[in-house]
Amino acid sequence: MKQILVISGKGGTGKTTLVSSFASLAGGKVLSDCDVDAADLHLVLSPRVNRKEEFSGGKEAVKDSSKCTECGLCYEGCRFDAIDENYEIDHFRCEGCGVCAYVCPEGAITMEDVLSGYSLESSTEHGSMIHGELQAGEEASGKLVTEIKQKAKKLAEEEGQELVIIDGSPGTGCPVIASLADVDFALVVTEPTESGLSDLKRVVELSKNFEVEPAIVVNKHDLNHQKVSEIEKYAEGHDIPIIGRIPYDSNVTRAMVEGESIVEYSDDGASEAIREIWRKVENKLLEL
């Protein structure tokens, strides 16, 4: 079984547009949305949720004020500024390490499991999908990504599918690192802007650090020809293939408003470019 990941570094470059299109172009596969704190793939694929499981990726300190003697040991021990001068626990900052509970001589602090989010197993008209919902403001996005990826892989094995297509999250931090684990091939979507290029370089470096081979897709390539050639130069210098160029196409937004993928919505422009990219991805998968 192969796993391909779509990432971008910079947000809003078109990851989900690409993955939702691949969903309708690819044959047997399982889809997986690992952008757990702003998951959007379901808005296009309208999944029917078959199973929703609670996910706890960590703990949180809870104080029993009646036992607290305000000795201040917890305040001194916490390295995350999660206990204030009044010895109240700031649950937004608490990382669940347990130092405060350990140092408290009165046993006033206990560590309790936190509901970090949910993992969902769903059916769509283009196959099964595993996705997640991170509770607003929770830690553990990386752990939830790992959970979703494991479930997607297991489901693909059960269904006898040869492919898992993963929609990743922006950035280079823990959820992205978790999404790169065990992946065969990463498609990095960028745009011809100064920021797009800067973020592309960072995420390509990350992907190489984790020994995942990247390939580049330039979205809205007709916005700035100068920046496209800078991207080309960078790609050539680092021996990374550019496997597609997608033109700016106002149908992309129209398709999104209709809740359809661009390849279902129209045939030319961005749709045509994405079909071509998918053909190249399929060839690439055969090589791996």
Partner: peptide, 24 residues
């Protein structure tokens, strides 16, 4: 972007959250 811990840390102690979106 997002709603996970780095966003919470950025918002922490802020007087105002100016949220940028697109009409989609």
């Amino acid at each position: 972007p997002g709603t996970a811990c780095p966003v919470i840390e950025s918002l922490h102690g802020s007087d105002f959250a100016l949220l940028v979106t697109e009409p989609t």
